[in-house]
Protein backbone atom coordinates (compact mmCIF):
# COMPACT_ATOMS: atom_id res chain seq x y z
CA UNK A 1 0.00 0.00 0.00
CA UNK A 2 1.35 3.45 -0.73
CA UNK A 3 1.15 6.24 1.81
CA UNK A 4 -1.55 8.06 -0.14
CA UNK A 5 -3.92 5.06 0.13
CA UNK A 6 -3.06 4.63 3.78
CA UNK A 7 -4.03 8.24 4.49
CA UNK A 8 -7.35 7.81 2.69
CA UNK A 9 -8.00 4.63 4.63
CA UNK A 10 -7.24 6.27 7.98
CA UNK A 11 -9.44 9.26 7.19
CA UNK A 12 -12.51 7.23 6.21
CA UNK A 13 -14.76 6.46 9.14
CA UNK A 14 -12.83 8.85 11.37
CA UNK A 15 -14.21 8.83 14.90
CA UNK A 16 -14.17 12.08 16.87
CA UNK A 17 -12.12 12.15 20.06
CA UNK A 18 -14.34 13.48 22.87
CA UNK A 19 -12.84 16.36 24.84
CA UNK A 20 -11.49 15.45 28.28
CA UNK A 21 -12.37 11.77 27.74
CA UNK A 22 -8.78 10.68 28.36
CA UNK A 23 -8.36 12.88 31.44
CA UNK A 24 -11.61 11.51 32.92
CA UNK A 25 -10.54 7.94 32.25
CA UNK A 26 -7.12 8.55 33.86
CA UNK A 27 -8.68 10.06 36.98
CA UNK A 28 -11.25 7.29 37.31
CA UNK A 29 -8.74 4.45 36.90
CA UNK A 30 -6.14 5.98 39.24
CA UNK A 31 -8.70 6.81 41.95
CA UNK A 32 -9.94 3.22 41.75
CA UNK A 33 -6.38 2.05 42.32
CA UNK A 34 -5.99 4.24 45.42
CA UNK A 35 -9.38 3.13 46.73
CA UNK A 36 -8.53 -0.57 46.31
CA UNK A 37 -5.27 0.06 48.17
CA UNK A 38 -7.22 1.63 51.08
CA UNK A 39 -9.66 -1.28 51.10
CA UNK A 40 -6.74 -3.76 51.16
CA UNK A 41 -5.29 -1.85 54.13
CA UNK A 42 -8.54 -2.14 56.08
CA UNK A 43 -9.05 -5.81 55.16
CA UNK A 44 -5.51 -7.08 55.72
CA UNK A 45 -3.89 -4.79 58.31
CA UNK A 46 -6.58 -2.53 59.76
CA UNK A 47 -6.14 1.11 60.79
CA UNK A 48 -3.89 1.66 63.78
CA UNK A 49 -6.12 1.72 66.88
CA UNK A 50 -4.50 4.89 68.27
CA UNK A 51 -5.04 6.84 65.06
CA UNK A 52 -6.81 9.82 66.73
CA UNK A 53 -3.98 10.27 69.26
CA UNK A 54 -1.26 9.67 66.68
CA UNK A 55 -2.73 12.29 64.39
CA UNK A 56 -1.99 14.88 67.09
CA UNK A 57 1.73 14.38 66.47
CA UNK A 58 3.81 16.11 63.84
CA UNK A 59 5.72 12.87 63.17
CA UNK A 60 2.53 11.22 61.95
CA UNK A 61 1.93 13.96 59.41
CA UNK A 62 5.51 13.87 58.16
CA UNK A 63 5.20 10.11 57.82
CA UNK A 64 2.05 10.61 55.76
CA UNK A 65 3.20 13.74 53.94
CA UNK A 66 6.57 12.54 52.64
CA UNK A 67 5.19 9.54 50.71
CA UNK A 68 2.16 11.46 49.48
CA UNK A 69 4.21 14.39 48.21
CA UNK A 70 6.45 11.84 46.48
CA UNK A 71 3.38 10.30 44.94
CA UNK A 72 2.10 13.66 43.67
CA UNK A 73 5.48 14.65 42.21
CA UNK A 74 5.82 11.24 40.55
CA UNK A 75 2.31 11.40 39.14
CA UNK A 76 2.77 14.86 37.68
CA UNK A 77 5.94 13.73 35.84
CA UNK A 78 4.35 10.46 34.71
CA UNK A 79 1.38 12.29 33.22
CA UNK A 80 3.73 14.51 31.23
CA UNK A 81 5.89 11.61 30.02
CA UNK A 82 2.82 9.69 28.88
CA UNK A 83 1.94 12.30 26.25
CA UNK A 84 4.39 12.59 23.33
CA UNK A 85 6.22 15.91 23.24
CA UNK A 86 5.16 17.05 26.72
CA UNK A 87 7.80 18.24 29.16
CA UNK A 88 7.34 17.57 32.88
CA UNK A 89 6.26 20.73 34.72
CA UNK A 90 8.44 19.91 37.72
CA UNK A 91 12.18 19.28 37.56
CA UNK A 92 13.38 15.77 38.31
CA UNK A 93 15.57 16.90 41.20
CA UNK A 94 12.42 17.95 43.09
CA UNK A 95 11.72 14.25 43.56
CA UNK A 96 14.57 14.15 46.05
CA UNK A 97 13.28 17.03 48.23
CA UNK A 98 10.79 15.03 50.37
CA UNK A 99 13.36 12.24 50.82
CA UNK A 100 16.11 14.69 51.80
CA UNK A 101 13.77 16.34 54.33
CA UNK A 102 13.03 12.91 55.79
CA UNK A 103 16.73 12.04 55.96
CA UNK A 104 17.56 15.40 57.53
CA UNK A 105 14.94 14.79 60.20
CA UNK A 106 16.24 11.24 60.74
CA UNK A 107 19.83 12.46 61.08
CA UNK A 108 18.75 15.08 63.60
CA UNK A 109 16.91 12.47 65.69
CA UNK A 110 19.80 9.99 65.31
CA UNK A 111 22.51 12.39 66.55
CA UNK A 112 20.27 13.55 69.39
CA UNK A 113 19.76 10.02 70.71
CA UNK A 114 22.01 8.06 73.06
CA UNK A 115 24.00 5.48 71.02
CA UNK A 116 22.52 2.59 73.01
CA UNK A 117 19.00 3.53 71.90
CA UNK A 118 19.77 4.24 68.24
CA UNK A 119 19.38 0.68 66.97
CA UNK A 120 15.87 0.56 68.36
CA UNK A 121 14.95 3.64 66.32
CA UNK A 122 16.39 2.12 63.17
CA UNK A 123 14.91 -1.36 63.31
CA UNK A 124 11.68 -0.60 65.20
CA UNK A 125 9.61 -3.73 65.69
CA UNK A 126 8.21 -4.14 62.18
CA UNK A 127 11.18 -3.60 59.83
CA UNK A 128 10.90 -7.12 58.41
CA UNK A 129 7.41 -6.60 57.00
CA UNK A 130 7.47 -2.87 56.24
CA UNK A 131 8.94 -2.99 52.71
CA UNK A 132 6.77 -5.90 51.59
CA UNK A 133 3.60 -4.37 53.08
CA UNK A 134 4.19 -1.06 51.31
CA UNK A 135 4.87 -2.92 48.05
CA UNK A 136 1.69 -4.95 48.42
CA UNK A 137 -0.39 -1.81 49.01
CA UNK A 138 1.29 -0.24 45.98
CA UNK A 139 0.15 -3.07 43.70
CA UNK A 140 -3.40 -1.80 42.97
CA UNK A 141 -2.05 1.68 42.19
CA UNK A 142 0.70 0.21 40.02
CA UNK A 143 -1.84 -1.83 38.06
CA UNK A 144 -4.04 1.24 37.65
CA UNK A 145 -1.01 3.21 36.38
CA UNK A 146 -0.19 0.52 33.84
CA UNK A 147 -3.80 0.50 32.62
CA UNK A 148 -3.66 4.29 32.21
CA UNK A 149 -0.22 4.29 30.56
CA UNK A 150 -0.96 1.52 28.09
CA UNK A 151 -3.75 3.67 26.75
CA UNK A 152 -1.32 6.59 26.37
CA UNK A 153 1.97 6.86 24.49
CA UNK A 154 5.05 7.23 26.71
CA UNK A 155 8.11 7.74 24.51
CA UNK A 156 10.45 6.72 27.35
CA UNK A 157 8.86 3.50 28.63
CA UNK A 158 11.44 2.57 31.28
CA UNK A 159 11.62 6.01 32.87
CA UNK A 160 7.83 6.33 32.74
CA UNK A 161 7.45 2.90 34.34
CA UNK A 162 9.92 3.78 37.08
CA UNK A 163 8.16 7.04 37.93
CA UNK A 164 4.79 5.30 37.89
CA UNK A 165 6.32 2.87 40.39
CA UNK A 166 7.53 5.81 42.49
CA UNK A 167 3.96 7.16 42.43
CA UNK A 168 2.50 3.76 43.35
CA UNK A 169 5.10 3.25 46.08
CA UNK A 170 4.33 6.70 47.49
CA UNK A 171 0.62 5.94 47.66
CA UNK A 172 1.38 2.49 49.12
CA UNK A 173 3.57 4.01 51.84
CA UNK A 174 1.05 6.77 52.58
CA UNK A 175 -1.75 4.23 52.93
CA UNK A 176 0.43 1.93 55.03
CA UNK A 177 1.19 4.86 57.37
CA UNK A 178 -2.44 4.62 58.53
CA UNK A 179 -1.64 1.19 59.99
CA UNK A 180 2.08 1.23 60.77
CA UNK A 181 2.83 1.96 64.46
CA UNK A 182 6.44 3.11 63.88
CA UNK A 183 7.03 6.80 64.59
CA UNK A 184 10.86 7.02 64.63
CA UNK A 185 12.42 9.08 61.84
CA UNK A 186 15.41 6.73 61.26
CA UNK A 187 13.01 3.84 60.71
CA UNK A 188 11.02 5.80 58.13
CA UNK A 189 14.19 7.11 56.48
CA UNK A 190 15.32 3.58 55.67
CA UNK A 191 12.32 1.30 55.40
CA UNK A 192 9.75 3.63 53.91
CA UNK A 193 12.23 4.76 51.28
CA UNK A 194 13.09 1.14 50.43
CA UNK A 195 9.36 0.40 50.32
CA UNK A 196 8.92 3.09 47.68
CA UNK A 197 12.04 2.07 45.77
CA UNK A 198 11.03 -1.56 45.33
CA UNK A 199 7.87 -0.73 43.31
CA UNK A 200 9.98 1.76 41.34
CA UNK A 201 12.46 -0.92 40.27
CA UNK A 202 9.74 -3.46 39.46
CA UNK A 203 7.77 -0.93 37.45
CA UNK A 204 10.84 0.19 35.51
CA UNK A 205 11.14 -3.39 34.31
CA UNK A 206 7.40 -3.65 33.58
CA UNK A 207 7.64 -0.38 31.67
CA UNK A 208 10.33 -1.94 29.51
CA UNK A 209 8.11 -4.96 28.89
CA UNK A 210 4.64 -3.47 28.58
CA UNK A 211 4.77 0.20 27.79
CA UNK A 212 6.11 -0.01 24.24
CA UNK A 213 3.75 0.87 21.44
Amino acid sequence: MNSHDLINMLATGLQPVPRHAVAKRNTLVLLTGVLVSLILLCLIYGLRPDLPQASQQLAFWIKLGVPLSNALLGLSIVLALAYPGQRPRVAYWLLSVPILCLWGWALWVWTGTAPSLRMGLLWGSTWKVCVMNITLLAVPVAIASLVVLRHLAPTRPVLTGALAGWFAGGVGAGVYALHCPEMAAPFLAIWYVLGMLLPTVIMAYLGHRWLRW
Partner: peptide
Amino acid sequence: LLAIHAQRHTYRRDALLSPWLYAI
Protein backbone atom coordinates in the same frame (compact mmCIF):
# COMPACT_ATOMS: atom_id res chain seq x y z
CA LEU B 1 1.21 7.70 10.38
CA LEU B 2 -0.49 4.66 11.90
CA ALA B 3 0.93 5.59 15.31
CA ILE B 4 -0.28 9.18 14.93
CA HIS B 5 -3.71 7.82 14.10
CA ALA B 6 -3.79 5.33 16.97
CA GLN B 7 -2.45 7.86 19.49
CA ARG B 8 -4.35 10.93 18.36
CA HIS B 9 -6.23 10.98 21.69
CA THR B 10 -2.87 11.71 23.40
CA TYR B 11 -2.69 15.10 21.71
CA ARG B 12 -3.66 17.85 24.15
CA ARG B 13 -5.66 20.44 22.31
CA ASP B 14 -3.94 23.39 23.96
CA ALA B 15 -0.40 22.06 23.41
CA LEU B 16 1.93 22.79 20.50
CA LEU B 17 1.46 20.32 17.67
CA SER B 18 4.96 19.87 16.24
CA PRO B 19 6.59 18.60 19.45
CA TRP B 20 3.85 15.97 19.62
CA LEU B 21 4.30 14.95 15.97
CA TYR B 22 8.08 14.78 16.08
CA ALA B 23 8.09 12.98 19.42
CA ILE B 24 6.03 10.20 17.82
